[in-house]
Design a protein around this nucleic acid. Structure first.
Length: 558
RNA sequence: GCGCCUGUAGCUCAGAUGGAUAGAGCAACGGACUUCUAAUCCGUAGGUCAGGGGUUCGAAUCCCUUCAGGCGUACCA
């Protein structure tokens, strides 16, 4: 609808210029917004004020010229019932109530694809997210990253990008060795070789469990191997087991990946060395204090960074450069990384890496997801990663359910810290937005069940009602909201902000609940009932559509 | 110290690319179930958009600055 109003304005501008009312043919982009205040109409434009200096005319005078040019030629469908010039020069548009009808037809015609766009033009985009080290189970923070990454990927795919979802496994390097050492020490303790357990080892109970499993399997065999071999064995085995746990957790959270990318493979295939060689070739590295430094300051970083340490080992950063080299080699036009906010200092460095490889900097984007504060009835739940005491994603999902967890993770902008209250997440009331939205879907399903029992024909589902039946204020408000959906989806995609969709769904739900309480869908009048069923079905479709982009189910019954 | 993020109603938060009189939920108070699911709705009340400058027809939004909080600032990952 907004699109059509823009077209009308554009036509009016041309006509006004042709009639000599507007001296200059130089028209700025037309912006149309929906005023907050109802009295200001359904849409309004500031075009007259923006053009004032170009046309060398007073804004209100220009507005008069434009309004005068809105005639049957500019508005062939007769959408505009009335216009007015207000304030410093706004033009307000009042849409004829009957003109909203076709929006519903569009919703029904497009079905599951309503709101989809070709914005991405089939370009390849990769979203890499979660990527937690396989040194321990996923916690709630990872859950938020998973919910955000998955939703962003879904939204981009819906907007015409060819999206691939990837998980990067840090299965090489020091943390994995520490994992092996931790497990081996617990293993030795289990066999009575009790030594002190260092602070820099992983403290969690799961380490003991892994050690116990190894003991059960291998007895004391590892004690007869060299320590290096034993630690390496523990590391390999523990990492594999933890990783399969992570994979199961994500699967049960409804998050799937197209590819699990191993850092170890990257190293073994020589891609890390190749990346370093490429940097050398390009002359962006230098040696200092036995180490090899990458001149990231050339790309805006605050200091240069080491890629090869004095001891000859490559850094994590070196792997990451190689990894991103590989991503772009795989043909992605856009690479989007979802990181925990504590890694924000890493962005300039990674961006430097990408640019040094000759990739345009805006093809690489990072979404920083801020932390989750876990609460229970308003009280913080003690969490200490240090002591290995943290609440896992699985525990949370088991307690509150997958839909609640996923939806609540998306109720904030990801750069805002999120309070996640376990008790609130379980509540089945107004306080809990998940059920509030899902309830609309179930309610409408229930109306249809009732309608069929009353003998409403299936035809109501596909036939557009005759115009003029859906004129209640609540009905127009619902249709307006539905007409905004495609724009909300596009904005979500353009800004990589799924919470916009979450908020849209909550406000659509509010409108429907209000409508439901005020009007009956199933009435004695057949035509009216059909019209309202047609509207209700459109609302249900958009709710389902939006929830599915967020990875949340749309139940028929609650 | 430097860098990034945040600061909007008592609480939790929306307000992309500058628009008219600042938005929602919760909490508080008062109402609505013989009805298609009350997991709902309606109403009342609540504000120096952290403070101060600037840019312009117009600023929560852009710029500068002060303050407060969070995070980062490794030859760790």
């Amino acid at each position: 609808m907004k699109r059509k109003v823009k077209d009308i304005i554009a036509a009016a501008l041309t006509r006004a210029h042709g009639a000599g009312v507007l001296p200059s043919p130089d028209f700025p982009p037309i912006e149309v917004e929906e005023p907050r205040i109802e009295a200001h109409g359904d849409f309004s434009t500031n075009i007259a004020m923006v053009m004032a200096s170009i046309q060398k005319m007073a804004p209100r005078k220009i507005a008069e010229g434009i309004v005068g040019a809105i005639d049957a030629l500019a508005d062939p469908d007769g959408l505009v019932a009335r216009t007015e010039i207000a304030g410093p020069g706004f033009i307000n548009f009042f849409i004829a109530p009957a003109a909203w009808g076709p929006v519903l037809e569009q919703v029904h015609a497009a079905g599951d694809r309503y709101g989809a766009s070709s914005m991405g033009g089939g370009r390849k985009a990769q979203v890499e997210f979660v990527s937690a080290n396989p040194t321990g189970p996923l916690h709630v923070g990872h859950g938020r990253g998973a919910a955000v990454g998955d939703a962003v990927a879904n939204i981009l795919a819906f907007c015409g990008f060819d999206v691939q979802k990837e998980y990067y496994i840090n299965d090489s390097g020091r943390q994995i060795r520490t994992l092996g050492r931790s497990v081996f020490l617990r293993y030795k303790q289990g066999l009575g070789q009790g030594q002190t357990f260092p602070d820099d080892c992983y403290q969690g109970e799961y380490i003991r469990e892994l050690a116990a499993a190894i003991q059960e399997d291998k007895g004391d065999a590892l004690l007869h191997e060299s320590e290096d071999e034993a630690v390496a064995y523990c590391a390999r085995r523990a990492a594999a087991e933890i990783l399969s746990g992570i994979q199961a957790d994500l699967k049960d959270f409804g998050v799937g990946f197209d590819r699990w990318f191993s850092e170890q493979d990257l190293v073994e295939e020589g891609k890390v060395d190749a990346a370093i060689a490429e940097l050398k070739e390009k002359g962006t590295v230098y040696e200092k204090d036995d180490a090899l430094w990458f001149r990231t300051t050339d790309y805006g970083d605050e200091k240069d960074r080491v890629v090869v340490r004095g001891n000859g080992q490559t850094t994590y950063f070196a792997s990451d450069i190689a990894y991103h080299r590989d991503k772009f080699d795989r043909g992605f036009d856009r690479v989007i990384d979802v990181w925990g906010a504590d890694h924000h200092g890493y962005i300039p460095r990674m961006s430097a890496g990408v640019q040094a490889m000759g990739v345009d900097r805006d093809r690489f984007q990072v979404i920083l997801v801020h932390l989750v504060n876990l609460l229970r009835s308003g009280q913080p739940v003690a969490m200490s990663t240090r002591a290995g005491e943290f609440v896992t994603l699985r525990e949370v999902v088991d307690e509150v359910g997958r839909d609640a967890a996923r939806f609540l993770f998306l109720t904030r902008h990801y750069e805002s810290p999120l309070d996640f209250d376990l008790e609130l997440a379980k509540k089945k009331t107004n306080d809990n937005p998940v059920y509030y939205v899902q309830y609309v879907h179930a309610r409408i399903a229930s109306i249809f069940a009732k309608g069929e029992a009353m003998g409403a024909t299936p035809a109501v589902r596909i036939e557009a009602p005759s115009p003029g039946l859906l004129t209640a204020a609540e009905e127009i408000a619902l249709i307006k909201a539905l007409s905004r959906y495609p724009e909300v989806v596009e904005n979500s995609a353009a800004l990589l902000e799924p919470h916009r969709l979450t908020y849209f769904l909550m406000s659509l739900a509010t409108l429907f609940h209000a409508y439901y309480n005020k009007h009956r869908v199933l009435t004695d009048e057949r035509d009216l009932s059909q019209a309202r069923l047609y509207l209700a079905l459109a609302v249900q479709s958009v709710i389902r559509n939006g929830l599915s982009l967020l990875g949340v189910s749309a139940p028929e019954k609650m």
